[in-house]
Amino acid sequence: MTKIILIIFFLLIPILESCDGGLAPPPESDKAFLNGTIRFVNGKDNWPVKDSVIAIRAAAFKKMPDQDIILSILNGDAYFTGESLPLFVDSVNFNFEIKDAPIELVYIVAVQQYSADILSQRVIGVYTLSGNKNQASSIMIENGKEYNITIDVDFNDLPPMPF
C-alpha cells in the first residue's frame, strides 16, 4: 500500500503542477486594435533618395515624447511597428494590438529612420483630424474595439518634431 501511495504521490505532483496549461493567446473579447494607413503624398515618386530611408515605422505614444522617440519606445511609452514597413510605395497599412486598453494614445505618427544609427529618426507624418500638422489628435482606445486612422506623409512638407 505504501508503494502505491508513494507512486501516486510522485505522479500527482507534476500532473497538478502542469494542469494550468501555461501560456494562452489573449481572448478576442479583450482585444483592442489600432489599424492605420499611411498615405504618401504624390505616391512613390515623391520619396527621398534610397540611402536616406533605412526604415519607416508607425508609432503610437501614450504620452508626448519629451527628448527622443526611441528612448520613449524603450521606456515602454509607445506602441510601434518593430520592423520597417514597406518602402517606396504609394501607401502602406499598419496594425497594433493595444494591450493595456482602455488608454488614450496622444500622439500617433509615421517615423523615418534616415541612417544606420537607430537614434536617427524623424517624424514624417502625424495623425490629425484638423489637417493641421501642428495639432496632433488623440484617440481613446477601449477594450474589444477596433479603430481605423489615416496619416498623410508629404516628404516636401514634414511636420515639426515634438521636442
Binding site: 505532483i13 507534476p14 503542477e17 502542469s18 494550468d20 501560456l23 519606445i73 518593430g82
Partner: peptide
C-alpha cells in the same frame, strides 16, 4: 517532470524587437 521558474529579466533591446516579450511563465513539463 521538469520545472523551471519564470525568467524575470530580459534584455530591453530584445524586448523592443519581439512582440509580447513579457509572455513568460514557469516551465512545468
Amino acid at each position: 517532470f521538469r520545472y523551471k521558474s519564470r525568467v524575470d529579466n530580459i534584455d530591453i533591446q530584445l524586448g523592443l524587437l519581439v512582440n509580447d516579450s513579457d509572455a513568460r511563465v514557469d516551465a512545468k513539463v
